[in-house]
Design a protein around this nucleic acid. Sequence first.
DNA 1: CAGGATGCTGGTATTACTATACCGGCACCC
DNA 2: GGGTGCCGGTATAGTAATACCAGCATCCTG
Lengths: 89, 89
Amino acid sequence: MVRQPLTPDQIEAGRRLGALLRHARAGRDLAEVAHAAGISPETLRKIETGRLPSPGFGTIVCLGEALNVPIQALAAIWRGNDLPLEVVS
Amino acid sequence: MVRQPLTPDQIEAGRRLGALLRHARAGRDLAEVAHAAGISPETLRKIETGRLPSPGFGTIVCLGEALNVPIQALAAIWRGNDLPLEVVS
DNA sequence: CAGGATGCTGGTATTACTATACCGGCACCC
DNA sequence: GGGTGCCGGTATAGTAATACCAGCATCCTG
């Protein structure tokens, strides 16, 4: 066994994370935010839509910084604690 | 351009992250911690030695949880804020 | 209303990297 | 001298990050 595929749990965690990030962006231009975070717009879009379920740690840290989302909120979302969305509003 | 290699900055960030995690583990068995975090001992060892500079977001979240390290400390280390190591002691 | 601009989406392709496993070797300590 | 634990190297499946493109809404403007 070399690297088993992502579990459904991980995939759903990625979807929750993407939804939170999209909620946090809330109007700002996708490309602008991606550039501020130092990643490509394509990558950000895929994260938001859940097609990149488990992005790199640095990617998320930079995104949280660019969007002013506390990293602990992202971690909580990932772990499944359905933290209220008010923390980012 | 498809996926440019990791920058030296990212590699050094990974090294700092690994050093912090190793410091936080501080005596506990590597294999035990890895199991608690839900990853393989090999992977944890590579993260600690800096040979996996930019692990997945979920990997770091689980590790922080297993080691009782606040996720914000890990993010700060990654960003380069040379946060004192006392936060984990 | 036509037509352009803007912004998001799904698809496909490519490359670097993650996560895992196995091995021999090197310490340290009882 | 045999555990116990860490290390470096190698190998491999699968994913992350990026790019390009055609399509489809919405909005503005002539």
